[in-house]
Design a protein around this nucleic acid. Structure first.
Lengths: 237, 237
DNA sequence: CTCCGAAGTTGCAATGGCTGAAAAAAAGCA
DNA sequence: TGCTTTTTTTCAGCCATTGCAACTTCGGAG
């Protein structure tokens, strides 16, 4: 069921056209001021069709969340033997967030026991690369929108939450015997929570992308060392 | 502007009636199957009036979030001199989450420089107590709804996110010179993230309320000790 | 090459959340 | 009681989202 054939190709093209039109319109007129009908019209599709591609107006902005996230799962499943928890988490974080190339390069069918027939796999990875290209192009606009439109922020948080759950399970599996389910969940929550809030705080202060990234790293560092370490008198020394 | 007078009292009564009717209907027929019109009808108000009390159908379930959260802010602002970060956070967590009494008792206008005239303050705290009573009564239903209805879960996550931001700022103020804004945000993210995901994992496994609470504590513990501590060979000893 | 079935698209109609504006009712006050 | 301020109600309407049935297109058999 992967995807060859004219049909599938056309579908993907429409999907991306919808994403692109949506982002452009959201930027130009604002999210609330843009109607689904307008997005559909821009792509010359019936409004009804929009909803066969995306479950809601918000979701069009998260078209690649699933595949991005599956990379993360694969990395966890492919834990290197004896790899310490923190190292693995950092690898996952980098892979997911650097989000630029990665999918564009083609050298990483490393991990996870996945499936796929010959043709289908080629077609799929082509689509994946195309999606990555699109994501790259839309990245700044998307970022602005998600951080400034409440409805999109809410959607993002909810998606992230669900992702975290699945990551927990994967982590638990990868560290069977070392982490119980509760611990695994806590680990993911602590890690993601620290990075997320630190980055957000940095962003709120109007800092540059580099500084936001640095803030996220500091957040992770605090997660790794533990809150207790902040109480030590005479740190910063 | 606090609230004495028939007018204000009536308003609060209507507000609570809306909450109560909404929760009852959501439980009976499901969230999606309940219309705002029905909730309004149950309280004998015009549908339009519902939206002058709550900005959305979801928000009716979070009627006391704001005041609950303000307690948290007050506790942070009232940091005991020299109190270690972790201790304060635990106090905040307990105060907010035990959520049962607390507001019902009347012995805690301790912290934070707030305002209020004589009468208004009395009236307000009466309302607060009434809200707490209502919250207590609705707690189980509310819990079920929020954890099972996606729209409500999303709303809860978004509210929590905004709260975390403000908590970060408060923390930064309470530990001026000890925590910079990024650190403060990371601290809150790590703490809340750990507790949240651990509790959720416990819940997902169908565990009892006590175990969920215990899980949250373990999440906090991991947040405090740091992820790094989990890599130490021979913990669990 | 043509015809069939699957997959996808469209149009239509309806539901229901949410909003703005202006009229009507209630509460507070002189 | 008569005037002012708040709230509620009415009314009209936008738009997201959905179910359904008709219609089109693609891919593959014969």
């Amino acid at each position: 069921m992967g995807g060859i054939g004219l049909r599938e190709r056309k579908k993907q093209r429409t999907r991306r056209a919808l994403v692109e039109a949506a982002v452009r319109l959201f930027e130009e007129k604002g999210f609330d001021e843009t109607t689904v009908a307008e997005i559909a019209a821009a792509v010359e599709v019936a409004p009804r069709t929009f909803f066969s591609y995306f479950p809601s107006k918000e979701d069009v902005l998260f078209f690649d969340t699933r595949s991005r996230f599956e990379r993360a799962l694969a990395i966890i499943a492919g834990r290197r033997p004896g790899e310490p928890l923190v190292d693995l988490l950092v690898r996952v974080g980098d892979a997911v967030l650097v989000h630029l190339d990665g999918t564009l390069r083609q050298d990483d069918r490393d991990t996870g026991g996945v499936d796929g027939t010959e043709d289908a796999e080629d077609a799929d990875s082509a689509e994946l690369a195309e999606d990555a290209r699109l994501a790259l192009r839309l990245a700044p606009a998307r970022y602005d929108l998600i951080t400034s439109v409440p409805a999109l922020q809410a959607r993002a948080l909810h998606l992230l939450f669900d992702v975290q759950r699945e990551l927990s399970e994967a982590l638990c599996r990868a560290y069977k015997g070392e982490l119980d389910p509760i611990e695994a969940a806590a680990v993911v929550g602590v890690f993601v929570g620290g990075a997320k809030m630190a980055a957000m705080a940095s962003r709120d202060r109007g800092e540059s992308p580099e500084m936001i990234w640095a803030a996220a790293r500091r957040g992770v560092q605090i997660a790794v060392r533990g809150l207790g370490s902040l109480d030590d008198p005479g740190r910063r020394g």
